[in-house]
Design a binder for these strands. Structure first.
Lengths: 333, 333
DNA sequence: GTGAAAGCGCTAACAC
DNA sequence: GTGTTAGCGCTTTCAC
């Protein structure tokens, strides 16, 4: 059943070295020999065993991307970007999901320890800076979407702080002064950076910063509604809401509607990510778009350049966001 | 840098065979030797090179799952099911996306040809029955969610026809007699099976079958609106709509609302899948739920049993659906 | 309970 | 332009 390079060599009447040469185009081979080999390959239905090749070469040309879950639909474009970039360099991207779990993430990282993968990209990690730095010393890793404070590791993400700043400033420009933010209390640098942007935009525009205007929940849809309820309970509730994700924004839109508010007329909501849901919703979500495809391409390009250059750069790259004006923000002025 | 089993053996003062034995628990080793080895492993930070192991064993314990894209959020639970089942048998699931592209799918399948993966699961394939059967002869493959007509290959999916039948019968029970169906014209057996279910339910209930009541588009959200528009253009339009997916159902709900219809009061809509979007929508989507987690577990369990038994069963398994009553269906009676 | 050694399939010196 | 061969890191007989 398992036809090997030896079988091909025998059938073609040449040595295994010659077969290997035509397989890899690694050296000149006479046309006649090449023909011989190729027809033998075809006849025998030969396919090179990469376990042998990879062992010999000490490389797999596989990059592992570890994502928390495939539930987050906005990973989809990132992955497409990764794949295209990888393909350009002869690499393949393989995905696996960690369920945001330390144990599973470690088990998957094992693939780089045991040489089953050449590198790993972490889209949201449970590991701390110290561990990450140690890994980065011995292996090729990159962070994507979520940076880790203090980790000097190649990181590619959107400009979270700038995006949040733009969102809030847009809300202010539309006439809003009481702006609530729905963020998360989970350890997430993207949320933290977006909070920074929110605060800076508020302050820069001469609006007093109120701590009670920042609600922190989880990334779950239900926390959109919970956040909205929380704000409605305040004596002086906000009339505009900046959410750290579109899922959360959708949550407040749904809850607000259920409570009799017309979003985009009575109150305003702005999300972040621009996932496909955002334009499927009624009303359609105004949001900050991440350049997902570009993010994916960039991590992989940089990671492979690290692999090839043997001089890790550990760049921290922030790609530009884009404000997408749709229907959930009311222009008061 | 690369510490191997030899280094461990040397450091522990034993042979590589002994190290291998403690690594795999494959044979009795004296406690003292085992301790020696384990501490050497710890000291040297040794991690076995799986390329060597896999080459030797002719197996990788990796199952490749090829999905069209991660955009379809309902794969998420399927994957979780796959992972858990795989983990129970000492396997890992790796994902890759084919973008519904023949070339990319083939490139990924290459991983089973070149022994980088032990088996592959196809969630919606571009390959035809003949190719699939040939692959199934030489390798371990399985189909998930989408069967292929005439392919005698292990297949696990929801009971598509039964689910559609249940949806349409529910609509009828709620008092509807004019039921339109929004399906797809792409080659998809799940759509075809759901059409069968629709037709059977209509006929079984003494309602005449009208060909113009079946609209065929793509899986794209926009085709929900297009389908709705098409139906509104009919001289005698339906007042209930069964959609082949929740995305499509969401499309008709949004369009209907924009056109001034109150879904769940003026007209009814029922989807399929029960993706997370369905309960985030306003109104929330009535739909047919797929047992995603179970589907994932089942394919992997059966696939691994095929691998172990050396006697492929090629079962065709249809798992039960569940009607989820929410807000988009009006009860006329 | 342990070690020596063959060999998994492949690539890449090296010699011719 | 081609063949011989060592060896990648590992597991597993086989002998002791």
């Amino acid at each position: 059943m398992n036809v090997t390079i030896k079988d091909v060599a025998r059938a073609a009447g040449v040595s295994v070295a010659t077969v290997s040469r035509v397989l890899n185009n690694s050296a000149a081979v006479s046309v006649s020999a090449a023909e011989q080999v190729n027809s033998a390959i075809r006849e025998l239905g030969y396919s090179p065993n990469f376990l042998g090749r990879n062992l010999r070469r000490c490389e797999t040309n596989i990059i592992l991307a570890i994502i928390p879950s495939t539930e987050q639909t906005f990973y989809s474009e990132i992955i497409r970007g990764m794949q295209n970039a990888a393909s350009d360099h002869g690499y393949d991207i393989l995905l696996s999901t960690s369920n945001s779990t330390y144990d599973l993430e470690m088990r998957l990282l094992n693939m780089i320890f045991n040489r089953t993968a050449d590198a790993a990209i972490l889209l949201g990690t449970q590991l701390d800076a110290k561990t990450l730095m140690e890994l980065n010393d011995k292996y090729y890793i990159a962070l994507c979407c979520e940076r880790v404070e203090g980790a000097d590791v190649l990181t590619v993400s959107v400009d979270d702080e700038g995006g949040a700043y733009a969102a809030v400033e847009y809300l202010i420009r539309c006439g809003h002064k009481k702006i609530g933010m729905i963020s998360t209390s989970v350890a997430s640098t993207s949320s933290l950076d977006r909070e920074k942007g929110y605060k800076r935009a508020v302050l820069d525009n001469g609006i007093p910063l109120r701590e009670e205007y920042i609600y922190k929940g989880t990334y779950d849809f239900s926390h959109g509604a919970k956040g909205f309820e929380y704000f409605r309970g305040l004596t002086d509730p906000p009339d505009a809401f900046f959410c750290v994700s579109d899922i959360l924004a959708a949550g407040v839109v749904k809850k607000a509607f259920a409570d009799g508010f017309e979003v985009g007329k009575d109150i305003s909501v702005c999300g972040f990510d621009n996932i496909s849901l955002s334009s499927m919703y009624t009303p359609e979500l105004t949001t900050i778009e991440q350049p997902c495809y570009e993010i994916g391409r960039t991590v992989v390009d940089e990671l492979i350049s690290n692999i090839n250059n043997e001089e890790k750069t550990n760049k921290k790259i922030k790609l530009p966001y884009k404000l997408i004006e749709r229907e959930t923000v009311k222009k008061i002025l």
